[in-house]
């Protein structure tokens, strides 16, 4: 059974429809890369999955259980949204760390609130668990640094630790490296590869084709609000069937 199933999702802003019937599924432990040129709805898709936007149509299933159906659930209570959100983690393009908190506090803040509200249980001391995640992303020695004292790559890794610490079923990444220069990009990509090896289920929107080719189990190509082609990296990168996929990928040939 797929861990995530998205069925026929539609989203528009005013008159512009951005998602026009998105369906796909993700198996447990899979790494799925979402590629496609600018403005084709990749971010919007992740925002719909994390309930930052409300799609007009579409069903989201986690492990076979429907957690959201746009047609039958016009209004969700804050509590329902909160519960649904905890199944997913989202890492933003521009990190969005909380500037007034240290790296450690960035990770522990939500843990503490969720454990106080009885929405998550953590086995053991929250600070120690959080330190563990920061070590895992290679920042064990930076736990008391404030975001402004960290490089972009380090900030993004704190953001990854912060998302991991809530133990989501799936982690979403929206172009996690596009705000970083190449050197810092590599350290974040290395962290992602580490997570992939540990069988973390991930959906990664990325423009790093080489990375997508290396770590993905599946690649989804989006064009104008639709998934026009998806398959193994080998299939997509070496033998794309759709003309749009071919056009898009030809723009990356010399980069690789």
């Amino acid at each position: 059974m797929p861990i995530l199933e998205v069925i026929d999702m539609y989203k528009s802003f005013g008159n512009t429809s951005v998602l026009k019937g998105i369906s796909f599924s993700v198996e447990k432990g899979e790494v799925v890369s979402v590629i496609g040129s600018s403005g084709n709805g990749k971010t919007t898709l992740l925002r719909c999955l994390t309930f930052l936007e409300r799609p007009e149509r579409g069903i989201i299933k986690v492990e076979g259980e429907t957690i959201f159906d746009a047609l039958s659930q016009k209004k969700l209570t804050e509590k329902e949204i909160r519960k649904n959100r905890l199944r997913f983690g989202l890492v933003f393009q521009n990190f969005n760390l909380f500037p007034q908190y240290t790296a450690l506090e960035n990770v522990t803040l939500a843990m503490q609130l969720l454990s106080k509200d009885g929405l998550k249980k953590f086995n053991g001391n929250i600070s120690e668990i959080a330190c563990g995640y920061l070590e895992r992303v290679g920042l064990g020695d930076k736990i008391s640094y404030y975001p402004f004292q960290l490089s972009g790559g380090q900030q993004q890794r704190v953001a990854i630790a912060r998302a991991l610490a809530l133990n989501p079923d799936i982690l979403f990444f929206d172009e996690p490296t596009s705000a970083l220069d190449p050197l810092l990009t590599n350290e974040v990509l290395a962290t992602l590869k580490g997570l992939a090896r540990e069988n973390m289920t991930m959906i990664i929107v990325t423009h790093e084709m080489k990375f997508a080719k290396e770590v993905s189990d599946k690649v989804i190509f989006m064009h104008e609000g639709r998934i026009v082609e998806s398959g193994s990296p080998k299939q997509i990168f070496e033998n794309p069937e759709n003309v749009k996929t071919q056009e898009f990928l030809s723009g990356f040939i010399d980069k690789d």
Binding site: E78, F88, L97, F98, Q100, L109, L119, A163
Partner: peptide, 27 residues
């Protein structure tokens, strides 16, 4: 306040009130 601060709090499962008092207010 950048929208990303609210959204980061929200996707971490915080309520609107928690986001306001724990994240936004100090800033």
């Amino acid at each position: 306040m950048p929208r990303g601060q609210y959204e980061a709090g929200a996707v971490l499962g915080m309520t609107k009130t928690q986001v306001f008092f724990k994240v936004i207010l100090m800033q």
